[in-house]
Design a protein around this nucleic acid. Structure first.
Length: 179
DNA sequence: GGAGTGATGACA
DNA sequence: GTCATCACTCCA
């Protein structure tokens, strides 16, 4: 069963508190325009928050660099980077600007794992720094689904053991339990 | 449990 | 310039 077309989320949606945005992204539809012109819509089921310069797991916690400068942009753009030389990671930049934070897309309905999501949706470097809107070929829509807190699970983030005792345990990973 | 893979950032 | 590290995935 496919996800019906919804209203495109405005830039303002992303220019807010990162944890709030992360939680609200569950059940929203990540939409990708395919080369043949058709659109694939996938409900977001797993996301992680990287909440600012003080977050030791956030790439920008050690300052602004060529790679992380996009995270200092006002929210509503993509941060895409290559991990382990093979996997593209998709992030949605949040907050109002000059404050590095983003949401990592770890999974959508039918696709688990951040590297598999980008592979299946053909997401790569070319989307880095582009705005989150229809004309970029990748955007987010409100699918009209209301997800109750009882369906949301929070856990520590994955693969950030280097971030120190506090940040590696913060429950900044959000999962939508669809069962 | 371990390899693959290459950009990135720290350091010289 | 070198070098270690990595918000992962797949196969044994």
């Amino acid at each position: 069963m496919s996800v019906p077309k919804g209203k495109v989320l405005p830039t303002a949606f992303f220019r807010r508190d990162t944890v709030t945005v992360t939680r609200e992204l569950l059940g929203k539809a990540l939409c990708r325009q395919l080369p043949d012109g058709t659109v694939r819509r996938c409900l977001l089921t797993e996301v992680e928050a990287y909440v600012g310069p003080h977050d030791k797991a956030c790439h920008a916690s050690r300052g602004k660099t060529a790679r992380t400068s996009v995270m200092f942009e006002p929210g509503g753009v993509f941060y895409v980077y290559l991990c382990y030389g093979m996997h593209w990671m998709l992030n949605l930049v949040t907050e109002g600007g000059d404050y590095p934070a983003a949401v990592l897309v770890r999974g959508v309905e039918g696709i688990s794992g951040p590297g598999r999501v980008t592979k299946q949706l053909a997401i790569g470097r070319d989307l880095n720094t582009l705005p989150i809107r229809r004309t970029s070929g990748l955007w987010v829509e409100d699918a009209g689904i209301d997800i109750l807190d009882t369906q949301v699970e929070r856990t520590p983030r994955i693969g950030i053991g280097y971030a120190g005792e506090f940040w590696m345990n913060e429950p900044l990973r959000f999962l939508w339990n669809t069962q």
